[in-house]
């Protein structure tokens, strides 16, 4: 297969970037998007050009490292798929494909397609955990967790922290990520003690990082590679207000 690839090139965090046009010839339909980009890089190297910087690691859709805006859609056209699990057979031969980084004020571009998503880590550091030290745990079966609760918690916990929700949101909002993090714990008995405090502290950090507010367009859900439901955003909104009314969230 052959493609025209328009890629965002940006030398560094402060520099001005632009789209550059390259040809990708001889691409196997069985190549993943990452493999196609790797081949393109080898070609660029041969031409004496600097390869495109992009991130990808596990290549099986679970580590959340890969992050490309492909033809205006986070992780490209296939539903429930990360960039690394997107295969070239999903594109028409001869197509022109535009590749941009995940964009948000809170995700500054470091180089080309590489962005800094450490804002997510800082949100989790504020409350995305259960405070229990090693050695304190009762027996694993001491607290029974109804199966449906465990399943709901797992639905939320599937989040891979890739940032596609932020990238696709017209408002650059991180609500799907934050709500998934909160709902993972809020739906388990173990997570109840810190439920409201956790929610409030994470939301406050989310605001501090400069993410936008949710206007319930649900675009995040459509591009989420793990198809995390926006139902969790409703739960986050509720827990936030309940927590505020209870006066939770103080340090």
């Amino acid at each position: 297969m052959e493609f025209t690839i328009r890629v965002w090139r940006q030398a560094g965090p402060g520099s001005k970037g632009e789209l550059k046009v390259y040809r990708a010839n001889n691409v196997s339909a069985d190549s993943s998007f990452i493999e196609m980009m790797t081949e393109l890089n080898i070609h660029l190297l041969e031409m004496g050009d600097e390869p495109v910087a992009f991130e990808a690691d596990c290549l099986e859709g679970i580590c959340g490292t890969c992050s490309m805006m492909i033809d205006g859609v986070a992780h490209g056209p296939e539903k429930g798929t990360t960039t690394c699990q997107l295969f070239m057979r999903s594109f028409k031969d001869g197509a022109t494909i535009t590749v941009e980084p995940f964009r948000a004020g809170a995700f500054p571009v470091l180089k080309d397609l590489v962005v800094d998503r450490s804002a997510f880590d800082r949100i989790v550091q504020q409350g995305g955990f259960i405070s229990v030290n090693t050695g304190n745990a009762p027996d694993g079966n001491a607290v029974l967790v109804p199966k449906d609760q465990a399943e709901t918690s797992m639905d939320a916990a599937e989040c891979i922290g890739c940032g596609a929700c932020v990238a696709s949101c017209k408002n650059g909002s991180a609500m799907l990520f934050v709500s998934a993090k909160a709902a993972h714990f809020a739906n388990l008995p173990q997570g109840q003690a810190e439920r409201y405090r956790r929610t409030i502290l994470m939301v406050e950090q989310m605001d501090k990082e400069g993410f936008g507010a949710c206007t319930n367009q649900y675009e995040c859900e459509a591009v989420c590679p793990k198809e995390i439901s926006v139902n969790f955003i409703g739960q986050l909104n509720r827990d936030y207000m309940v927590g505020k009314l209870k006066g939770a969230g103080g340090k």
Binding site: M69, D71, G72, R103, A213, T215
Partner: peptide, 11 residues
């Protein structure tokens, strides 16, 4: 929300 995405997407 505007400020949350200072650089717009081309596509």
């Amino acid at each position: 929300n505007r400020a949350a995405r200072p650089t717009a997407y081309v596509t």
